[in-house]
Simulated assay, not measured.
Amino acid sequence: MQLADIVTERIQRVTQAPKVALHEPRLDGNELAYVRDCVESGWVSSVGSYVDRFERELAAFVGAAHAVVVSNGTSGLHLALQLVGVKPGDEVLVPALSFVATANAVSHCGAHPHFVDSTAATLGLCVESLSSYLGDIAELRDGQCFNRNSGRRLAAVVPMHTFGHPVDMPALQELAARWSLPIVEDAAESLGSWIGERHTGNFGHCAMLSFNGNKIVTTGGGGAIVTNDPTLAKRAKHLTTTAKLPHAWAFQHDEVAYNYRMPNLNAALGCAQLERIDGFLEAKRELTQRYLAAFADVPEVELFVERPGTRANYWLQTLILSPQAAAQRDQILAATNGAGQMTRPVWELLTRLPMYRDCASMPTPVAADLAARIVNLPSSPQLVTDLAA
C-alpha cells in the first residue's frame, strides 16, 4: 500500500466520516442567544456590553492585565507593532515560516520584514540561530539595534506560535533584552497554549490573538491585542477607535488612527465561545491521542506533539513526514483531499512570495525543510465530541 493510501486510511479511522473539513467552529452553545440579544437590543455595532465583557474575560483567561478586541488579527498585529514604536523604514524580525499576515502587518507599518529561520523543536522562530545571526549583522547604537548591512533600525522581533506550539520565549526574552528588541507575539494560533504556568502572549510588550472562523475560539472575524502595560492598552483602545476624544456629542480626533473596532455582534459570539474553551481544548488533546495511536506503526510519519514544559492547544494537528517521505507530500495531499479528508501543506515560505523575495533574510534551511514535510490534518474539536456521543 502506498504511503498516501495509508495516511488517508488512518485519518478516516480517526474521523469516521466520509467528508471532514480541516477545522470547523462549534457553535452550539450560547452563540445564538447572545447574538439575538444584540439584535433585539439594537447594540450590533462597535459599542456594547459584549465588547466590554469579551475583553474582560479574554484578559482573565490568558492572564493578561488588558485586552483590546479588534476587527481581525492582521489589524491587531499592525497596531501592536506601532504600539512598540515600529516606524516606516525600520526592519522587523519575523519567521520565514509563518502565515503571510505576519509579514503584511510589518509592511502596513511602512517597515521591512527581515526573515529568520525556524527550529524543528517548536516549528517556530529559532532563538539559537537568531542569536548567532544578530552577532554577525547587528549593532547597538544609543540603546537601539541596527542592521549593519542595511543601516536600518531593527525595531522589533515577532515570534509566531506555530499551530499553537509555543516558541522558546524565556530564551527569546533574554536575547531580545541583550539587543534592545521589543517583542510582539503573534499569538494568533495559540489561545489556550502555555509555557509553564504562563499563557502565550505574556512574554513580550504585547501580543495579538486571532478569532477567525477556523481558530480555537471564533468571533466570525476578529482579533485582540493583549498586554500587561496599561499605557499600551490605553493607546491601543484610542487608536482602534479613530482617536476620538470622549465627548457627549462632538467629534474631535487628535491624531491619524484606525477604525479597527470589533462589533458587539462578533464579541457576543466570542463570549459564548470562551465559555466552552476548556472543552474545546480537552477535545483537541484527545484528538491528538487518537492520531498518535492511528499513526504509531507508520514509520514514515510522526505527529508533532508539545515539548516538555509547555502545553499546546493543538490548534491544527501536524504530521511531519520523514525526510525520505518528503517527496510524497503532494501525493498525500491529493489522496486525502480526494477522499474527503481535508488536509493542507504549511504556508509557502514568506521569502518565496513575490513581494518579499528581496527582503533581508538569514539562511532558512530548517524552515525550508519543515515546509516540505508538514501536512496538517483535520482538527475540529467536534470530531472527538461526535465520536464520544
Rank of each mutant, 00 (worst) to 15 (best):
A64V: 06
S75E: 03
V44R: 10
N104Q: 15
A105D: 00
S46F: 10
A33T: 14
V92E: 10
V69I: 09
E57P: 05
R36D: 13
V92Q: 09
G110Q: 10
V51S: 06
G63P: 04
L79S: 00
F99I: 05
V86H: 01
F99H: 09
L81R: 04
W43M: 12
P25E: 07
A64G: 06
R56T: 09
H114W: 14
V84E: 01
V44I: 12
Y34R: 09
A59E: 03
S46H: 10
V62R: 02
A65T: 11
S41T: 13
V35H: 05
P88K: 03
V92D: 11
Q82A: 15
N72Q: 08
E55D: 07
C109K: 06
R56S: 11
A67D: 03
F115N: 05
T102G: 13
G29P: 12
W43E: 14
K87W: 00
F54E: 07
S98R: 12
D90T: 00
F99Q: 09
A111Q: 11
G73P: 01
S45P: 04
F54P: 05
N72S: 13
S107A: 14
L32M: 06
L97Q: 05
N104D: 15
E57C: 04
L77N: 04
G48C: 00
H108R: 11
N104Y: 09
D37Y: 14
P95L: 02
V39G: 07
H112Y: 09
